[in-house]
Computed example of a mutant assay.
Amino acid sequence: MNTTKFCTKCGKELPMDAEFCQFCGAKQSSVENLKQTASNTDIADDTKPGKEIIFEQDNSSTNVLEKKSKFKKYWWIYVLVGIVIAFISFSLLGPSSPTDVASDVEESLKNDNSLDVTSVKPDKESGTIIVHVKEKKAIDDLYMGKTSTFKTVERTLLDLSKKYKDEDSNGYDLSYIQLMKPGTNDMILLSVDKGKIKYSALDDME
């Protein structure tokens, strides 16, 4: 059994039960707080005179308790942040509204620049998206028997219809889009649903 130890400040050899160093006067740690993890030779090598031994305190348990305390204190903030994130996720990934689809259709047709769009609105009575336009190139060409520009409009509306083919909202079939003849409310030039053409004015020209 070891009968000596080394001063934690100056490194001089002391009796195991010494409370103070007889050389430098430094207070010594009790035996119970010291963990003997090496042989006397290793200790002697690591405690040369003038070298200070530093004992590190394990603060892991204290840190865990502090984190738990902070969580309990600010739990409502974490809950609020979670609710906000869930709401944003639902808004981005949730079903589209008829108004959203109408806006998408209007923007897409205007980007095509083939039609002079006057309004795109969800129609409550039919449960479809109704597109109203003025006379412009695609319509003029159609009346003159030129179909290429109108076919561009067909492709645009077909892509939009396919995009919303699995979505219904408040009685609306969001993939059902109807293009009305300029100046009318009941004459259809083009009707698409579920990504397919239900009616096209081009059919009457063939």
Score class of each variant (00 low, 15 high):
Asn2Val: 09
Thr3Ser: 02
Thr4Ile: 05
Lys5Ile: 01
Phe6Asn: 15
Cys7Ile: 07
Lys9Glu: 11
Cys10Tyr: 09
Lys12Phe: 04
Leu14Arg: 07
Leu14Tyr: 06
Met16Ile: 14
Ala18Glu: 00
Ala26Met: 05
Ser30Phe: 12
Ser39Val: 01
Asn40Asp: 15
Thr41Arg: 08
Ala44Pro: 00
Thr47Pro: 00
Pro49Leu: 14
Pro49Gly: 10
Gly50Val: 01
Gly50Gln: 12
Lys51Trp: 00
Glu52Asp: 08
Ile53Glu: 15
Ser60Gly: 07
Ser60Phe: 07
Thr62Asn: 11
Thr62Cys: 01
Val64Ile: 13
Val64Glu: 11
Val64Ser: 04
Leu65Pro: 00
Glu66His: 06
Ser69Glu: 11
Lys70Asn: 07
Lys70Asp: 05
Phe71Trp: 10
Lys73Asn: 07
Tyr74Pro: 01
Trp75Ile: 09
Trp76Arg: 10
Trp76Val: 02
Ile77Ala: 14
Tyr78Arg: 02
Tyr78Asp: 04
Leu80Ala: 11
Leu80Glu: 02
Leu80Arg: 04
Ile83Met: 04
Ile88Leu: 06
Phe90Leu: 05
Leu92Ala: 09
Leu93Ile: 12
Leu93Val: 03
Pro98Thr: 04
Pro98Cys: 12
Pro98Met: 07
Val101Asn: 02
Ser103Pro: 03
Asp104Ile: 09
Val105Gln: 13
Glu106Ala: 13
Ser108Arg: 15
Ser108Leu: 11
Asn113Glu: 14
Asn113Tyr: 04
Asn113Thr: 10
Ser114Cys: 03
Ser114Ile: 00
Leu115Glu: 04
Leu115Pro: 07
Leu115Ile: 01
Thr118Met: 07
Pro122Asp: 10
Pro122Phe: 05
Lys124Ala: 15
Ser126Val: 15
Ile129Leu: 13
Ile129Glu: 11
Ile129Trp: 14
Val131Arg: 12
Val131Ile: 13
Val133Tyr: 05
Lys134Thr: 06
Lys136His: 15
Lys136Leu: 06
Lys137Trp: 00
Lys137Glu: 11
Leu142Arg: 01
Tyr143His: 06
Tyr143Val: 02
Gly145Trp: 05
Lys146Cys: 01
Thr147Gly: 09
Thr147Tyr: 09
Ser148Asp: 08
Ser148Trp: 00
Thr149Tyr: 15
Thr149Glu: 13
Thr149His: 13
Phe150Val: 05
Phe150Ile: 05
Lys151Ala: 11
Thr152Arg: 09
Thr152Lys: 15
Glu154Pro: 01
Arg155Cys: 08
Arg155Asn: 13
Arg155Met: 15
Thr156Ser: 14
Leu157Lys: 11
Asp159Tyr: 08
Leu160Gly: 08
Lys163Arg: 15
Lys163Phe: 15
Tyr164Ala: 00
Asp166Cys: 01
Glu167Met: 09
Glu167Phe: 07
Asp168His: 04
Asp168Met: 03
Ser169His: 09
Gly171Asp: 00
Tyr172Leu: 10
Leu174Pro: 01
Tyr176Arg: 14
Ile177Tyr: 08
Leu179Phe: 11
Lys181Leu: 07
Asn185Asp: 12
Asn185Gln: 12
Asn185Val: 03
Asp186Val: 03
Met187Phe: 06
Ile188Phe: 01
Ser191Gln: 04
Val192Ser: 02
Lys194His: 08
Ile197Leu: 06
Ile197Gln: 03
Ile197Asn: 02
Tyr199Val: 07
Ser200Gly: 00
Ser200His: 08
Ala201Glu: 10
Leu202Asn: 00
Asp203Asn: 12
Asp203Thr: 06
